[in-house]
Amino acid sequence: MTWTLFALQALNGVQFGLILFLIAAGLTLVFGVMDFINLAHGVQYMVGAYLTAAFAAWTGSFGTALLLALPSALAFGLLLEALVFRHLYDRDHLDQVLATFGIIIFLNEAVRVVWGAAPLGVPVPDILSGSIPIGGLNYPVYRLAIIAAGLGVAGLLYGIVGHTRIGMLVRAGATNAPMVSALGVNIRLLFTVVFGFGAMLAGFAGAMVAPILSVEPGMGDNVLILAFVVIVIGGIGSVRGAFLGAILVGLVDTLGRFFAPTLLRFVLDPSAASQTGRAIAPMLIYILMAATLFVKPSGLFPAKR
């Protein structure tokens, strides 16, 4: 029974990790290729969720909403890039942090103005609404669908980054950006493509979680910080690092929250164990990150040389 519980929690962890990966992939590429630290990447996720909620309410179909939300998220990302971000590529990290922080403040409020402060819900699409029994417990099909979608995107990214010309340029850019522009590649165009793609992935993550989380202002902020933890653990600029880091963070966070209080019961009395466990669990991933950086100050798979 506990093993089943463990397996289900592990599935939840993987599912959470894959969502983090969708966000972290764009973040790490944008950072690796453009040396641009984009705090506003989290709002792309929020915008993706809101667009999906809005389109779902309008069309009544999650599938249609998803199909509409993806290009909209892409367009929105490109708009932000053209309006603000492209003026920041040459600035230092401090300026980038501040300006994108300003965008977060603005968009969190804008969302509140347009859709209100109350959380929105999106119904789970009918075909994916059931649950299937795993070892005597029921597991929602929709979460399995998220896992499948996440793995699919990860495979797609792996193919693109590893085996196409643009992927080669992206990898080269993450290792040595000046060299890529010296090759005569239109680096601005490459930036825009990478940026738009990253924004769409984050939007996709937002769309996928819309039916299982509440869609509300500020929902991107905490996810953003987790995505940072992911790419720092994985090594900035590395998609492979982002994938492993994301799964690791997803598992540690989910399993930690679930099992820390239980495990502590071996050494503490129940109430103390539950309290300490709940205090320690949210800190686990940060401890993981600190430990990783203590051993490898540039993360597990540093792309830069």
Binding site: I225, V229, V232, A281, P282, M283, Y286, A290, P297, G299
Partner: peptide, 20 residues
């Protein structure tokens, strides 16, 4: 940038400790 993010993470760590 690693420094920026790790200080952010340490801040969050303390934040979550306080909420708990």
């Amino acid at each position: 940038v690693y420094f920026i993010m790790i200080t952010l993470a340490f801040g969050q760590m303390l934040f979550f400790l306080a909420t708990a």
